[in-house]
Write a protein that binds this DNA or RNA. Structure first.
Lengths: 211, 211
DNA sequence: TTCGCTTCAGTGGTCAGACCAGTTTATTTT
DNA sequence: AAAATAAACTGGTCTGACCACTGAAGCGAA
């Protein structure tokens, strides 16, 4: 019913326009994960385009992991976190030595940045709670650093890191064993807020001799 | 001609199957950026599916930045290196427009990371060429740091930084005046490869007292 | 020959319509 | 009221038809 009838979408491909329309529609209506989108036929009619064009847009968004479609039911918003996207990209990119190096390099440096941010910003209580968690919980390396990046309290780094993490994991590199002690030591140095020591411990944990 | 007719692709959606077929086709034929893919009609025939399904797959890959289509010419492989990944990310970063602080913080830290990378990896000649450029050219802060990030030779950081830069500029913050001397000093410390000094000079340049 | 124009086959872009295969809701039957 | 059935939706897919654009082949004039 609502007249989402577009801005004159000149020149660009229809399906791209539809993607944009969908985004503003999602924002406008405040759609959240789990919510249903209008049906393909309704979108087609509302936007004044063919159903096949609507489908091209929806399929693209689906491959991106932004939406989910269930036959007979409809199309739904999804709780996206890059998963789908990263997985697909990684299968395509493959064998690109430099890309792989970039991913590793970037992931490590951002983790280091977050450690630095924690030293600057985190409260004593947060760090102690983190320490407590590390002693009790059963966690993987990803879990551990997700906590780190979360503690750093920077939304952008969080998002970037999550994507890098997924991408990194999809690379299927040899996994580095990190002992409980190493994690514990890192936390201790965080609590002591010793910048250079944190860097040292982190590099050691990541088996980074120098670079 | 070649019978790419693969696994019966049961159960999954046709367009997903086509994406997979395309990937193996690309791998099998060793297609590189710039190379042309078979036409939609040919793919449709080869894979025994409808052209609309082929299009759904191609449109999705296009939105991902893996391929590029030109009307009247065809569909071509694209030079992808994870950049689209970040670009996609940006459209969602831009959604939560809350944290200006995060943008600044992230931009600065990434610039610092790049400076560190340069110290580690850049060759003497590159640095000298950079210095020469800085003495002759007329550049803005963005120009200067674009050089920095480029020198760091990390595609992901480059992409992320560009997005952050654009976003940062759109925030319309008070611009910080940076003198030519400060840029020059930064370059000098880079050439001397003095890590802690680079950090100090950079912070000073960005007017970051401590954090 | 060589240059310039026209023609035409090929390619992506888009739409409309037709089915199929599931799910949900309404209706009828028990 | 409960169960079985029917209708109305929703996505999934294919086909065929145009359109707009590109590039190369063909052709004629210089």
């Amino acid at each position: 019913m609502t007249p989402y009838v577009n801005p004159p979408q000149n020149n660009t491909k229809v399906y791209i326009g539809i993607v944009k329309q969908l985004r503003s529609m999602i924002e406008h209506d405040g759609l959240k994960p789990g919510d249903r989108l209008p049906s393909e036929r309704e979108l087609s009619e509302r936007l004044g385009v063919g159903r096949s064009s609507v489908r091209e847009a929806l399929r693209a968004l689906e491959l991106l992991g932004l939406i989910e479609t269930r036959r007979g039911e409809g199309t739904f918003m999804r709780d996206f976190r890059g998963h789908q996207l990263v997985q697909l990209l990684s299968t395509f990119i493959l064998q690109d030595k430099k890309s792989i190096r970039d991913v590793k390099e970037t992931k490590f440096l951002i983790e280091l940045d977050c450690l630095w941010l924690i030293i600057q910003k985190a409260g004593e209580d947060q760090l102690l709670r983190f320490k407590k968690w590390s002693l009790e919980a059963d966690y993987s390396d990803d879990d551990f650093f997700l906590e780190i990046v979360t503690l750093a309290d920077n939304h952008l780094f969080l998002r970037i890191w999550i994507i890098l993490k997924d991408y990194y994991n999809s690379l299927d590199l040899e996994t580095m064993m990190v002992t409980r002690e190493q994690y514990a030591r890192l936390i201790e140095t965080l609590i002591s807020r010793n910048e250079s020591e944190v860097i040292r411990v982190y590099r050691n944990l990541r088996k980074l001799s120098k670079s």
